[in-house]
């Protein structure tokens, strides 16, 4: 007499197959999360290097009087802290008009926020970024929450933080990148 599998055998076999499948699935989900982190990291680094390039161009390209920049010092107006929850309501507009150094620093911080979160383009960043409203933007990487700290004194450093998301999309701590020289007290 040929006997089929018992229910217990089928369950055990299924369990044995399901374990590696579930493990592989977890691996893939974790890989997706890692790719997301890499995307975010690359985007944050791009935003930071973009900010540094703009600041450096004006810092090095302008013959600033001593009252604006002391020898060996960075433009002190760009020393700032910024958070996604605390964006300037109406930043100064420096497109097609001259801005003082402090106005320009505020404008640059708003611009950095817009680079970090292009989702804001519609209601906040159109004037700041200054490109047509219908422009297609890359919405694949954006930070809904972030903190930015720019230190400008003897050294110049930009630090960007954003929430670390677990596989199930729940935040757990913050990712952080730093570009530039870390200040002596270690808190750029």
């Amino acid at each position: 007499m040929l006997r089929g599998f018992t229910l217990l055998e089928v369950l055990v076999a299924t369990l044995l197959v399901a374990i590696p499948v579930a493990a592989t699935q977890m691996l893939m989900l974790r890989s997706a999360a890692v790719v997301g982190v890499v995307h975010s990291d690359a985007h944050a680094r791009y935003a930071a290097s973009h900010f540094v390039a703009r600041v450096s161009a004006f810092h090095l390209g302008g013959f600033w009087p001593d009252s604006a920049v002391s020898p060996g010092q960075w433009l002190r107006n760009i020393d700032m802290e910024l958070s996604a929850d605390d964006l300037p309501v109406s930043p100064p507009q420096c497109i097609n008009r001259w801005c003082s150094a402090s106005q320009w620093a505020d404008f640059e911080s708003a611009h950095l926020a817009c680079v970090l979160n292009v989702q804001l383009l519609g209601d906040f960043c159109v004037d700041v970024v200054g490109i047509p409203h219908h422009a297609v933007t890359d919405r694949s990487t954006r930070f809904t929450a972030f903190n930015v700290r720019v230190s400008a004194g003897d050294d110049f450093a930009v630090a960007i933080e954003w929430p670390r998301l677990e596989v199930n999309q729940t935040p757990s701590g913050m990712h952080r990148i730093t570009l530039g020289t870390v200040l002596r007290n270690g808190t750029p």
């Binding site: 703009r54 161009a57 004006f58 090095l60 390209g61 302008g62 013959f63 600033w64 009087p65 009252s67 604006a68 420096c94 497109i95 097609n96 008009r97 001259w98 801005c99 003082s100 150094a101 320009w104 200054g130």
Partner: peptide, 30 residues
């Protein structure tokens, strides 16, 4: 594209200008 420009007035001023709006006294740095 946009010019990033600087001028020495009032201790140094900065602006970003479209092609048609670049002031004559601007020094393009970016």
């Amino acid at each position: 594209l946009r010019y990033g420009a600087w001028r020495a007035d009032h201790g140094g001023e900065i602006g970003y200008f479209d092609a048609d709006n670049l002031p004559l006294d601007a020094r393009v740095v970016l």
